[in-house]
Design a protein around this nucleic acid. Structure first.
Lengths: 258, 258
DNA sequence: GCTTGAAATTGATCTAAATCAAGGTCGGAA
DNA sequence: TTCCGACCTTGATTTAGATCAATTTCAAGC
């Protein structure tokens, strides 16, 4: 028997007459609500969400979070891709992940963000303050439970990426990256008949290199080699077609040396 | 106003006469309770914890979790060190972290563990089934909140390790590792006057190499070089003395080329 | 259609770390 | 005490990927 949402939050949603209802629609028609944390909150309480969040549209290359600044907000990605990264004083950079539609960005333990975040393409975000997240956590046990599941999933992905960074060859790294991008395309375009063989790669070679722990030259050469080997084709429009997924999988897990 | 613990769980604790009290003492006198997730549960409810967990002592090199097997348990490390790792089909291995006293092991989203875990030295563990964790999560909002904080912290560490694996040189990797081990020693030996300059390294060179994405030869050579440069001394007893923490920090963050 | 600058590709060369190859050290068992 | 095996260290050589250095492609603006 979970506690019912506090009167405080509900009345807060009702305070601004008219506003709450108009805003609620935004959440009710949200294209990613079913696939992200917001699904923890029932339709009837969606006004709370709409009140707690603000939508913003950002052009490519916009800083969402500056590394080391005060941690105050949390973001849900509605559409587009955001890159998360950490840097060394001399400018070397490691991209720790890409957040696509339905994923979140900005959870932090310490008072400052230990990472940066920047848009890759045009991105629609839902912004929420940490204080509001704390309210949702306290009032909706399902929200807390789903956030825990989501963070645990991120941790699992991070462990897989550590295996990639520490132990895979350049060819294995690129193959693994393409498989991830196919999975992502499939998630965001479930009805596309080509979803099985399409990888969306909106990021530049610099970003891919910083994600895989390589240089842009090595990424470029490796993609060229995969094309030469007839495992992939066409890189136009930031879209790569996969000719043989089994081959790509074998390469990604070190089962094939060619 | 958090919900009070359910009668079900409390009565369960009281069911086995005598047992609950004797077991409760184990949790009340636990050396790490104040520093781990169990601190989420008040003294008066500690019987629930004692009933939910079983202690076990394991010799060095024991498998705690086998990669790919059914995920059913969760462990708190009471003393000693556990290594977590992922492997490739051909045997290449990446250690994704070391869990020392006060840390936990075994959270999983999927039905199987996506990683393995093995003791480094003699380890005392507290075992708890996932079902029991779910009970604690549902009944104690503070437990859920603290677990979220702990997993978020793990994620932050994982991101730092990705920066290390993808972008640091061998010398920077080893320096970063030693700094982490100093921090760990300080946490577990707060009253040792030498805690500031001592790093406990119970793991072998193979484990260090698999953690840093290097080979054992490179780890060995790099540690020798740091000793030659008078930045560290003495490797006897799996214990390394740091002669200059500022130098080590400069190396770890790429501020010093020597 | 042209200009321009950023992004990507390709080639030549270099180097940090891997690999190959001995020895050395140390703690426990006989 | 010495024997053994696991672990560690050090040296010589190789190599995957980095670095350096040109082109080439491509999309945006005129």
């Amino acid at each position: 028997m979970p506690p019912s949402p506090s009167a405080q939050v509900i009345s807060h949603a009702g305070n601004r007459t008219g506003r709450a209802d108009a805003e609620s629609v935004r959440c009710l028609i949200c294209t990613v609500r079913e696939h992200n944390l917001c699904s923890s909150i029932e339709d009837q309480d969606v006004g709370v969400l709409a009140q707690a969040t603000r939508q913003l549209s950002l052009p490519p290359g916009t800083t969402v979070i500056e590394e080391g600044t005060a941690a105050s907000a949390f973001f849900n990605v509605i559409s587009g891709t955001v890159k998360l990264f950490k840097s060394l004083p001399d400018g070397r950079r490691q991209i720790t992940g890409f957040a696509d539609a339905g994923q979140f960005v900005g959870l932090s333990n310490s008072r400052t963000y230990s990472f940066g975040a920047e848009t890759v393409d045009t991105v629609l975000l839902c912004r929420c303050t940490h204080a509001q997240i704390e309210n949702l956590l306290a009032e909706y046990p399902r929200f807390a439970r789903n956030l825990l599941t989501a963070v645990t999933h991120e941790l699992t992905d991070a462990q897989e990426q550590m295996l990639l960074l520490g132990r895979k060859t350049a060819r294995e790294k690129v193959a693994s990256f393409l498989l991830d991008r196919i999975k992502q395309y499939h998630r965001t375009h479930p009805h596309d008949p080509d979803a099985e063989t399409t990888a969306s790669v909106p990021m530049t070679r610099v970003d891919i290199a910083d994600y895989l722990g390589l240089t842009i030259e090595t990424v470029s050469r490796t993609i060229s080699a995969l094309r030469r080997d007839k495992i992939i084709s066409g890189t136009e429009n930031h879209c790569i077609r996969i000719l043989s997924i089994p081959n790509l999988q074998d390469i990604a897990y070190g089962l094939k040396s060619i």
